[in-house]
């Protein structure tokens, strides 16, 4: 070998080389821990759900409209939990999509630098509010307010928590959508302005179509957040599984069912214990699909600019 030896002293310094290798390995292990967590989540959920599905056929699980694993007459249909999850998510989206999109367009296209620098931290603070506090808000403030409009509304309903959940996910939509709008090249804006378009016309006809996949990705990730949200619905929507899409009724979501079972006495290995893992697996599959879809949409956007 004709490779020049830069420093004979350093090349002989085994201790130093071994130390470097060891540290690199330790860092690799820490990074690989993320892979371990994912595999552990899948392993635990699947291995605990398998005995459940030996007891209950997947067909019954997906088609039965009654969910009563902890009563004497047992039914194992996930549909009531899914209907609750979808209804609250849908209400949240009705609130969050317009508000979040308007905020994003305003911050990205209308607001001055100073306004943007003030509003973004406020949105971040809104993200930092713990969900249990939002749950209190839904039960003690929003539902009584709604009851003044609809006197028939029960204390536990899906409307109040849905609306509060919407307020909770506005910042997610706003910041993700704003990021993608700001990523649209300045030349496109200037082109529109040069043609005499107003800021509103530019935002709606030029910027929004250009950033549409980023905006849609923001919606999808917000749906995923709403589907997995637990405390707001556990506190304010009641925890009784109910196959309905009517927002004024009380119902359980997948997450609030898990909470209600965990609050009671859990018999390790019992069917109630296994049922929360089956419910959790359903939730994981739903959010995973949404997240993958969201990331794919966003990647498509990133490729264009």
């Amino acid at each position: 070998m004709s490779e020049p030896i830069i420093s004979a002293r350093l090349s002989k310094d085994f201790q130093r080389n071994i130390m470097e290798r060891f540290i690199e390995f330790a860092l690799l292990c820490s990074a690989a821990f993320a892979v371990f967590i994912t595999s552990a989540i899948v392993y635990v959920l699947v291995s605990e759900a398998i005995p459940f599905f030996q007891h209950v056929s997947i067909y019954e699980f997906l088609t039965d409209t009654v969910w009563t694993p902890n009563y004497s007459i047992k039914h194992y249909g996930i549909l009531p939990l899914i209907s609750g999850t979808l209804t609250t998510t849908f209400i949240a989206l009705i609130v969050a999509v317009p508000l979040g999109t308007i905020t994003a367009i305003y911050l990205s296209e209308f607001a001055s630098h100073k306004v943007r620098e003030t509003v973004k931290p406020i949105l971040e603070l809104l993200v930092g509010v713990p969900t249990v506090v939002f749950g209190y808000f839904a039960l003690m403030l929003v539902t009584p307010l709604l009851q003044k409009i609809y006197p028939d509304l029960t204390t536990f309903n899906m409307l109040g928590p849905g609306i509060v959940m919407g307020v909770m996910i506005v910042p997610y939509i706003a910041s993700l959508a704003e990021d993608s709008m700001r990523a649209v090249p300045m030349a496109m804006r200037e082109g529109a302005y040069a043609m005499g378009a107003t800021r509103f016309q530019t935002s709606v006809r030029v910027i929004t179509p250009a950033a549409i996949s980023g905006i849609v990705a923001a919606y999808i990730l917000a749906i995923s957040r709403a589907v997995g949200e637990t405390m707001i619905v556990a506190i304010a929507a009641g925890q009784q599984p109910n196959f309905t899409f009517n927002p004024v009724e009380s119902a359980a979501t997948i997450t609030s069912y898990i909470v209600s079972v965990a609050l009671g006495d859990l018999e390790h290995g019992g069917i109630g214990y296994q049922s929360i893992f089956a419910a959790g697996l359903t939730l994981l599959v739903m959010t995973l699909l949404l997240n993958i879809l969201g990331h794919m949409t966003r990647k498509k956007f990133a490729e264009r600019y």
Partner: peptide, 20 residues
């Protein structure tokens, strides 16, 4: 995995901890 973990609902971590 890292970006995926950030999107997993927190209650799923609770189930992981319960089982593991």
């Amino acid at each position: 995995n890292v970006s995926n973990l950030a999107g997993v609902p927190s209650i799923i971590y609770g189930l992981l901890a319960l089982g593991l």
